[in-house]
């Protein structure tokens, strides 16, 4: 129960002072951003969310990014719809979309939906900039924050709890 209550805090601490490298944190933020922007319920969103958990990236940073960009994505729906509509109705791209749709599991990818395609384009467009910015931010902030935060007992305690959780001591 305590672990359940402390989990968000632990995630926050983990994302800031975890042992993950800045690259891992940057990848996580970029992936989380992409997964967060996409409407949930498609195979694409599921695949991205699974990648976030399955890859050696900073999960906490990825989940935070996903949560944040989910709100941002909802605000961008109008723009994403227009962008997706343009893309889906672009004659040159239609054979490719039709081919994808016609493949097994094609309808499950959600690539016929204007908002999914629009958000995917936005996400892909922002992926590298977000990665670079996250990498720079992580490289700059992580050591400093770690040093500063580790001075606090509670953070050390949370960090210890995280280590313990990772070793299966939570139960």
């Amino acid at each position: 129960m305590l672990n359940f209550l402390l989990r968000p805090l632990r995630f926050l601490a983990q994302s800031l002072i975890g042992n993950d490298s800045p690259r891992q944190t940057a990848w996580a933020v970029a992936l989380g951003m992409l997964a967060g922007l996409l409407p949930k319920g498609s195979l694409l969103a599921l695949l991205l969310a699974t990648s976030l958990f399955a890859l050696q990236v900073n999960r906490a940073a990825g989940l935070l990014a996903m949560g944040l960009f989910s709100f941002a994505g909802a605000a961008l729906d109008g723009f994403a719809h227009r962008l997706g509509s343009m893309m889906l109705t672009w004659p040159s791209a239609q054979p490719a979309f039709a081919w994808i749709y016609d493949q097994p599991l094609g309808p499950f990818w959600g690539l016929t939906n204007t908002v999914v395609v629009g958000q995917l384009l936005v996400g892909l467009y922002l992926f590298y900039p977000v990665y670079r910015l996250s990498l720079a931010a992580a490289a700059y902030l992580q050591p400093r924050l770690r040093d500063r935060l580790m001075k606090y007992r509670v953070i050390r305690w949370l960090k210890g709890a995280e280590v313990g959780a990772q070793w299966g001591l939570e139960s």
Binding site: L88, Q94, F97, Y101, V116
Partner: peptide, 11 residues
């Protein structure tokens, strides 16, 4: 209509 976007058919 779907709350987020519309579906475009490719057939």
């Amino acid at each position: 209509a779907r709350a987020r976007g519309t579906n475009v058919l490719f057939m």
